Computed example of a mutant assay.
Amino acid sequence: MASITDPNMSDTFTNAMEEMHNKQLKAFGEIIDATAELCQSHRQFVKSAQDTCLKKCKDDELLFETLQTFKRDLQQKSTLLKEKRCSVTEVMAEIQQKEMQKEEIIQKIEKLKEEQAKRKELIQSQNRANKDRLKNLQKARLVFQDHLGMEIRTIISKTVKGEKLQFVFRNINPSDQDSAYVVTMGIKDGVYQIVSSDPALECLPALESRLQETNNLAAFLANIRKEFISRARQ
């Protein structure tokens, strides 16, 4: 064992202490470097995590805004859909109403066609009846005008629509053969109508009614002549 009084012993101890100190400094330096590296790594990790969180927040905000936009669009589309449904309902109701109106118009047209057909048939019937009456007038004209001196006149009135026939009887009054006895009549809607007689006959309405029932003009004129003769002998 070396003595502490050995002069080399102090150098050895000093060198050993310096070597130990250097080793500790080196170790401490390595620790500091590792700590600095860990701090730098930690800062980078924190920054990366912060950037990731910020990006995530921005993405979430964008997603939220997108969702809000979709929600608003959905509400608008829902509102438009409701309005379109209401419009479709109104259009369908209008179409249904027009279909009903169409059916009513068709029914009215059919009714008008039926009425027109009836009027046409009635007019044809009246025309046939008028032709028959004209034939009766011709026969009466032959009988009364040729044999009894009766004259038939056509009168066109400016105030009354249509023509009137005037039957002028003569050879009624034995004392005055040329004296005229007149009855005026017309045809309305296929029916004989007596307008007047000169001189006036009280039985004229009854004779008119019978003429309308029998449609026998010759018999009517014969009865009128008899009444005029009876009136002249009074």
Rank of each mutant, 00 (worst) to 15 (best):
I224K: 02
M9H: 07
N15T: 15
E202S: 08
L148P: 11
Q44G: 06
K71N: 13
E208C: 04
Q124P: 00
D60S: 14
N215P: 05
T214H: 02
N216W: 04
A2P: 07
A180P: 14
K58F: 08
M1H: 08
Q193K: 08
L112W: 08
N127R: 06
L142M: 11
K161V: 03
R231I: 14
E163H: 06
E121W: 01
L201S: 10
K108V: 02
N216L: 10
A117D: 09
K158L: 10
A129G: 11
K56R: 13
L54H: 02
D198C: 05
D11C: 06
L148I: 04
D33T: 14
S157D: 13
T12K: 13
S157A: 06
K120N: 05
D33F: 06
R225C: 11
A232S: 10
H21V: 10
E163M: 02
L142H: 12
Q50K: 02
S78W: 00
N127I: 03
Q96D: 14
N130Y: 06
E202Y: 01
E94H: 12
F70Y: 13
C203G: 08
Q101M: 12
G29Y: 00
Q124F: 05
G162Y: 01
C39K: 14
E37Q: 11
L112A: 11
P7A: 07
A222R: 03
R210C: 10
E90R: 09
T79F: 14
S3E: 14
Q68Y: 08
E208K: 02
A117R: 04
L112P: 04
I224E: 01
V191Y: 07
Q177A: 10
L38M: 12
S3Q: 13
N171H: 09
I109V: 15
I156H: 03
T66A: 15
K98W: 01
R72I: 07
M1Y: 07
K226H: 10
R225F: 13
E213I: 10
V191S: 11
A2M: 06
S3P: 02
Q234N: 13
M20G: 09
M150Y: 01
I106V: 09
S78I: 11
